[in-house]
């Protein structure tokens, strides 16, 4: 009996550890900080795989994307502002891809907070989103980002040694492709 009781604190601590991992982060990703741990599935779509410079199967972390800068949009299919901004964010992708100086340096991805794979596909099809979108069905990534409202944009600079730094983050207020690209270039030092 004594042995059972002596294990209780250990079980309690283990449970609390589990709980803390399920709890939302205190602070959203901010300029000067680093990303929370985000594991995304390597896309099955070959075009998306090539776009991100990834190979094989399994999972990847955002700093593994072959780029100098990664722009992450945390969005939801159910979010009116994300829907409204979708054409402008697509335009940002097009501006980057059409510019030979930027094409291989800046990559764009979207993470659908609370969206199932089906919902992500609906959004992708409705707005003809040309860049990779990832479902976050169980809000795991959204929680790691302190449950930010959507859309939330994070600009990450990837260093040559594999480390990274958030150089810009903003909630909503997407200003359009041109001004946002300008902001990304300045914040990341690409300009």
């Amino acid at each position: 009996m004594k042995n059972i009781y002596s294990t209780l604190p250990v079980i309690g601590i283990l449970l609390l550890t589990l709980v803390s991992s399920a709890l939302p982060a205190n602070k959203p990703p901010e300029k000067g900080g680093v990303l929370p741990v985000i594991n995304l599935p390597i896309p099955k779509n070959p075009t998306e795989k090539v776009y991100l410079g990834l190979s094989g199967d399994g999972f990847f972390k955002i700093p593994q994307i072959k780029a100098k800068v990664v722009i992450i949009e945390i969005y939801s299919m159910y979010c009116p502002y994300c829907q409204k901004d979708a054409p402008g964010v697509n335009e940002l992708y097009t501006f980057i891809e059409k510019n030979p100086d930027l094409k291989n340096k800046i990559k764009l991805i979207g993470i659908g907070a609370g969206n199932t794979p089906f919902e992500v596909e609906v959004y992708k099809k409705t707005y003809q989103v040309p860049f990779p979108l990832f479902p976050d069905k169980d809000f795991t990534i959204h929680k790691a980002c302190a449950e930010v409202r959507t859309p939330y944009f994070i600009v990450v600079k990837i260093n040559d040694d594999g480390t990274h730094q958030i150089v810009h983050a903003q909630l909503g207020d997407y200003p359009g492709a041109d001004p946002f690209l300008e902001l990304v270039l300045k914040a990341s030092g690409l300009k």
Binding site: Y81, H142, T150
Partner: peptide
């Protein structure tokens, strides 16, 4: 309790 709120 998880949900995402639009900035709208």
């Amino acid at each position: 309790m998880a949900f995402a709120i639009s900035d709208a």
